[in-house]
Design a protein around this nucleic acid. Sequence first.
DNA 1: GCGAATCTTTGCGGCGGATCAAAGCGCTGC
DNA 2: GCAGCGCTTTGATCCGCCGCAAAGATTCGC
Lengths: 232, 232
Amino acid sequence: MHGTAEQDILCRTDLFRGLSPDSLRALRRSATRRRLATQDPVFHQGDRAETFYVVAEGRLRVTQTTADGQQVIIRYVGPAELAGLAVLAGDDLHPSTATAVADSEVIGISRAVIREIMARHPEVAMNAVSVIAARYREMQQRLREMSTQNVERRIAHTILRLAREAGRRTARGIEIAFPLSRQDLAEMTGTTLHTVSRTLSAWEGRGLVDSGRRRVVVRRPHELAMLADAAG
Amino acid sequence: MHGTAEQDILCRTDLFRGLSPDSLRALRRSATRRRLATQDPVFHQGDRAETFYVVAEGRLRVTQTTADGQQVIIRYVGPAELAGLAVLAGDDLHPSTATAVADSEVIGISRAVIREIMARHPEVAMNAVSVIAARYREMQQRLREMSTQNVERRIAHTILRLAREAGRRTARGIEIAFPLSRQDLAEMTGTTLHTVSRTLSAWEGRGLVDSGRRRVVVRRPHELAMLADAAG
DNA sequence: GCGAATCTTTGCGGCGGATCAAAGCGCTGC
DNA sequence: GCAGCGCTTTGATCCGCCGCAAAGATTCGC
């Protein structure tokens, strides 16, 4: 699984959907591959935005850190998804940091290459519009959640979303397929690890989830969804 | 100020920057103008996304309403800015509602027209990427604020942002140039009108702002910015 | 100019969730 | 196998902000 897998992943992205085999081949030649171990950084907040990445395998965590050192998780990025969208927009700097949370493989594409492809293939530029618009909508949804829902519902929504994006069916239920700590969930929902821990403990008591050290399994997705949609 | 003003506004947008005069003229012919009084709706959440709008004059409020009827304000949109970005992305439905908050004039452009322009003029498609990416970044910032800052700082940031986007210099300070109620600020910051009212009263006591019925004037922008950046 | 509607202010009580503190648990490395 | 580190749990306390309630301003319609 080398070249062919790589080309597969590129044409499976929403960004390059519809690009001709020839162009894909050329793109593949100018792209670079990188293997990452857990914890390896891909780029840092404030770095020059020279290269964006397609995840071929594994998963990245995208975070932002505030002036006073608080961190929030913007998103997890999985196979066939993109990290470093600022490059597509032609921005100078990466506004966020991307880090591998599992052994991963990414394909890097430089600003110059993607800008030229978009200029030559408007359908790719239009795909880029859709990709970023989807992220924008995602963000609107999270903002709405933060504004109107209490902590328990926010955690429920977040876990359900992760289960959808990165869920693995097991005998016990749907397992989120990468290490996810209480602290991580807190940084996604705007609360503290203490509150997340208490909430998961309560759910565990009711048989909704099964969780442990950096591990979450959703046992009753339907009931958790009810809870996520309940008032409050 | 008819045709010429309209063309001016179109070429002053980030979206159509760099488009040739000929194409602009053609675009202008296929666009429609609409005058709006305060409170007039432009489009509704759930409507088919057939047309997006360039604000030529005035201001729109873009909101989302949750299943249980709670409203959040996504953004205010002023001259040379866009409303209805979903149309650019080719989405089926408008995810939000846009309403005039002052007498306004908008220029409507249909999905078919903009898609064709983007297909023919990649630079416009790339502009669209930048426009949406800017909104995405804006949203990330607000999410970060919601996650890490207390109510007072969020209100301060919000008012400063509005003053920057829609501020009018007056003898008393910078006046936000459209009607803005306590409830509106609450829906932008994820709090209640009561808390906004208390906060503004406190600031008024310290001479930071001067506010009344649907009216906010920032008297000491610098001090308000200090407060917005302070810890907490 | 009067009343009604809308927006704002302010007091009071309560609670969700943060904060502080300390102890348990499960990996990892030697 | 034991030490040590990072993650998790749980208790106790506190406080920022919400929710409710009622009165005070301001604008608008007739």
